[in-house]
């Protein structure tokens, strides 16, 4: 069994919605099985070419293997059965959750530093302020980028139809673009951190640029990957 055939087999299973861990492992097992049958026949004194032919007959056609894998719904991935939830809604929720976590951590760090400031050295206070600023950047930029990038990676891994994840990335980008925030905490630790969501027609260009800054670095590599793997097609129904 050559690599191209095994790769094609894995690709067929993934595109049909079989969970990657089942698809990849089953194909690897099939390859090992074929090699074992060939070795068994060779050990019995059968010539190499004949051993290969007999092994192929005993192992059976790829079609039967694919048909049997697809006939078992328990082998399908949850995400392939609910792509809208997994790749459109979940990235949005993940972004909100990650941002909330960063903001919560930021508040905790600054409050703790303010509470214990009498016992902290100036360097530690500056460190706490720096950590707060980093958490603010993470909430505003890293959280949406991470949520969108992970969605693209998982969708690529599972060969999910691109429309769901593209919609998810756009939603994350738009939501992020509508969030305004500021971090204004001096070393006295008595400042303000603000975050709000809103949209106004006169700020449309600014919102669009902000959305594009977030969407482009995630979506362009994903679209390039789709193009290079020729998966910009609608998944066939089974």
């Amino acid at each position: 069994m050559n690599d191209a055939r095994l790769e094609a087999l894995t690709e067929r299973l993934l595109r049909a919605g079989v969970a990657p861990r089942h698809a990849r492992r089953a194909v690897q097992e099939l390859r090992a099985h074929h090699a074992d049958v060939v070795a068994e026949l060779r050990a019995a004194g059968i010539p190499p070419a004949q051993s290969e032919a007999l092994a192929a007959e005993r192992v059976g056609p790829d079609e039967a293997f694919v048909r049997d894998m697809l006939a078992r719904p328990e082998l399908r991935s949850w995400a392939s059965r609910r792509p809208f939830v997994a790749f459109t809604l979940l990235p949005l929720l993940a972004f909100i959750a990650l941002s909330a976590l960063c903001v919560g951590s930021l508040i905790a760090v600054l409050e703790a530093a303010r509470h214990w400031r009498a016992w902290l050295s100036p360097a530690l206070i500056e460190g706490a302020r720096g950590l707060g600023a980093a958490l603010f950047v993470a909430a505003m930029w890293l959280a949406p980028l991470a949520a969108a990038a992970v969605a693209c990676l998982l969708a690529a891994r599972q060969r999910i139809a691109a429309r769901w994840v593209i919609a998810g990335v756009f939603l994350v980008g738009l939501l992020r673009a509508m969030i305004n925030g500021s971090f204004d905490v001096p070393t006295s630790l008595h400042g303000s951190v603000s975050m709000g969501i809103g949209w106004a027609p006169h700020r449309l260009p600014e919102t669009a640029v902000r959305a594009a800054i977030l969407i482009a670095p995630v979506l362009l590599p994903y679209l390039w990957w789709l193009r290079s793997h020729r998966v910009l097609t609608v998944r066939p129904r089974h």
């Binding site: 089942h22 492992r25 089953a26 097992e29 099939l30 099985h33 049958v37 005993r58 192992v59 059976g60 056609p61 790829d62 039967a64 293997f65 049997d68 894998m69 006939a71 078992r72 328990e74 082998l75």
Partner: peptide, 21 residues
Amino acid sequence: LGENVLYPALHSLEARGLLHA
């Protein structure tokens, strides 16, 4: 038993919690 259809069966039994791998 087609030897290649053994694997879908094993994976299915594993997914249903009847086998571990």
